[in-house]
């Protein structure tokens, strides 16, 4: 109805460009560790494969495990039993956003980490809202955190699965720092 002729011109991307979109690499010091890790990740039910990392991303050995990057925190939990160098995206910024921003609303403080926001009441430390994000664990984490004190909650990185959960965890960490320092950052 609205696309008209433009619709036919749209490209769905080449197969080559599609192939690595959304992927990340887990890097290892040794091939043996990479093979063992791939088995652990696959056994836990996550899509993964052994690949050769591109030269610019290579750290350690020349075998890596390719994963869906959005599942990074869940896969890092699986790999607590293994030894790996780091997780890195196949494209874009190689580092997770680590910027914390703070906004005050009277007795409430909102902490923003990337696309996730957490608001707590002071001085009680009670979480009164979370907002932002879009991954499927975010509504679940909202329910888990709401109405609880900052030091009584499970960490989103421990019960969440996605990159949004990881950013929410950073907001929790920032909020705890502020709350435990009596409102000062």
């Amino acid at each position: 109805m609205f696309w008209g002729k433009e619709k036919t011109k749209r490209s769905s991307g080449s197969d080559k460009s599609k192939k690595h979109k959304g992927k990340g690499l887990v890097l290892f010091d040794s091939v043996e560790e990479a093979i063992r890790a791939e088995r652990l990740v696959a056994k836990a039910g996550y899509a993964c494969s052994l690949v050769a990392p591109p030269p610019q991303l290579r750290k350690g050995c020349d075998v890596a495990v390719e994963i869906d990057l959005v599942e990074q925190p869940a896969i890092e939990r699986v790999l607590e039993q293994a030894s790996y160098v780091e997780v890195t995206p196949l494209s874009g910024s190689g580092k997770l956003l680590d910027i914390i921003q703070i906004f005050r609303y009277g007795n409430y403080t909102m902490v923003r980490a990337g696309n996730m926001k957490l608001t707590f009441e002071e001085p009680s430390g009670i979480i009164v809202n979370t907002s932002g994000g879009g991954c499927p664990d975010i509504p679940y984490l909202h329910i888990e955190l709401m109405g609880k004190r900052l030091d009584e909650i499970p960490r989103p990185k421990d019960i969440g699965h996605t990159l949004c959960a990881l950013m929410l965890d950073r907001a929790v960490e920032g909020a705890r720092d502020i709350w435990m320092n009596g409102g000062e950052k």
Binding site: G92, L96, C164, L166, M167
Partner: peptide
């Protein structure tokens, strides 16, 4: 290049 808002350019 970003595939998720967690990995955007700082």
């Amino acid at each position: 290049e970003a595939v998720h808002p967690a990995y955007i350019d700082k």
